[in-house]
Design a protein around this nucleic acid. Sequence first.
DNA 1: CTGAAAGCGCTTACAG
DNA 2: CTGAAAGCGCTTACAG
Lengths: 353, 353
Amino acid sequence: MTTDGPNDARPRARRSSSPTVHDVALEAGVSPMTVSRVLSGGKNVRLEVQERVARAVETLGYHRNENARSLRPGHRSGLVGVTITNIANPYYAEMLRGVEEIASSHGRRILVGNSNEDADLEKQLVADFIGRRVEGLIVVPSSAGDAAHLQPERLGGVPLVLASRAVADVAADTVLIDDVEGARGATAALLAEGHRRIAYLGQRSVFTGRRRLEGFTLAHEALDLRPDDELIRVGQQDVGSAEQAMTELLELADPPTAVFSANNRNTVGAIRAIVARRRSGGSAGTSSLDIRVAGFDSFDFADIAPVRLSVVDHDAGDLGRRAAAMLFDRLGDAPQPLDARTLELPVTLRDLF
Amino acid sequence: MTTDGPNDARPRARRSSSPTVHDVALEAGVSPMTVSRVLSGGKNVRLEVQERVARAVETLGYHRNENARSLRPGHRSGLVGVTITNIANPYYAEMLRGVEEIASSHGRRILVGNSNEDADLEKQLVADFIGRRVEGLIVVPSSAGDAAHLQPERLGGVPLVLASRAVADVAADTVLIDDVEGARGATAALLAEGHRRIAYLGQRSVFTGRRRLEGFTLAHEALDLRPDDELIRVGQQDVGSAEQAMTELLELADPPTAVFSANNRNTVGAIRAIVARRRSGGSAGTSSLDIRVAGFDSFDFADIAPVRLSVVDHDAGDLGRRAAAMLFDRLGDAPQPLDARTLELPVTLRDLF
DNA sequence: CTGAAAGCGCTTACAG
DNA sequence: CTGAAAGCGCTTACAG
């Protein structure tokens, strides 16, 4: 019946926006301070009052505003920013899940952005995330463009962990998989089987691509061999172009007897080309029927692929968990190692035949 | 040389936390208000002053605090909350990318949570997201447990779009794929080829699983047939258990001549079982060599699978984009449709042989 | 074109 | 056990 209460002063507008501590306080007949106490565990509040407040919270559907809360000094946002070149890539999706798992276990939520291999977009995402006061960043860095926005001094003290790819001149914690050893081992296995004309399908513009080509080359050099440049194909972006590249290789006068592919898109493309050629009768004698395949990454159907296939397996979930763990290391109160650390996760060569 | 400025009053502590408008103002020799004006476009600020402020922003590495900004009345958080049962599932990863794409184009960022098919976790995520004042929610609802937390009145006015699965008694906008028609069409195709013993591999506990089983049944009923209960297997969660279930079916006295699988894990499992049996000689005559397969969802290697395979294809990215578009419809200033809408996206049956 | 005041929702001392 | 005051970083009127 009073007309001077603050609740009367803002009659309907209140309905459309969220209730505040103030509204709950009014409803429960206490001060906002007491509401705040109850929300933080109820220390030093009479049980009866606690219950009254809890009921008011329920009635009004109150949710504490975390953004306002994180404004107070000493409070953190509870957010971690994650930037990925392609969140639809199953490998990175698995990684993202690993990150989310660890973040969740630390009570943090993740802001996720797709950089689409575009450094400008990545830069915007990072700036936006910092504006939202993320406590840390996990970035799969884009391969194209300038990476100045990832320099520690540009991040205003927000810890950064690079995942899957390192960035030249950026001294940040980094988690990689052992690309060089994976490619070297797989190639060495093909060489040990006697293959001497081994094709390479991969990329050179991407960090992991360069590392895998390095492993491929190292395996040859260990036997005083040199890969034939004619058999090295880089730049295939998808399964279609990989299939095309492999088809061309099979049509060479002196075709390869084996192929190492640096990622699963290239592996699938290569297998498609081999199968297509087999179905069409294999013009170059029977040799193309026996093309041996080894590839980085696994995929759905790898174990019943219709070729002799080995894969270099690695755990994307672990990559994400390790990256997140490194980040939370920096966020903890423990004494910090000053230098950026790099972790290389092991890989496994599996024969699927 | 002065010792009385506020910047001198807080000498080193300032270094560790982020600079504020106040710090920038000091550095540029203007008021915080002017800094704010410049950050919002520079309207009504002398060009010379704008430049001075811009330089100060650069020098200090200032990033505007979005959380504080969103506190002001009329401001929005710029966040959308996304909850998915399994973000590592390539299908949902593709969906997430669709959501991110549309959200980005509206200047919003996404908070992502993995609910792991756990309604309690999902509830926590949703509560947390609302606490962070997300402008909307996109949820792939978990199949297990109570869904009361998704009731509109519990969401405090935050719009919700359900993706991929509907929830009984929750009147929210929903985007589905046409599960019933996809399963019906694929099954009808098998029946049209003359198959009369068609196995079903899928789930019954999940919304989509029930709908796909319904389509499977409908196709039979259209021909006055009834599927044999002995051939219906539900509850396989992964490729391994699907392979096991298919192996059992192949060992029946009167085995199926075809199989419809309700998702790609079951399809891959079925194919593995068929291939394994073929390799081991196919004890039941040659019949098991000819098992015809049709499955919901596509996967990496579908087109060179060593069986006669058809897949029910659908666009996960589109699912995400449509869900996000529905959400932004509700967020816009346009007049709102009052009732919850349901959208069913079309599917395509593709023969891969 | 520029700034002092006030308040968004919350919580940390401080006072009772 | 409870509350009034003050301030986190920002921006919307309002005044000049």
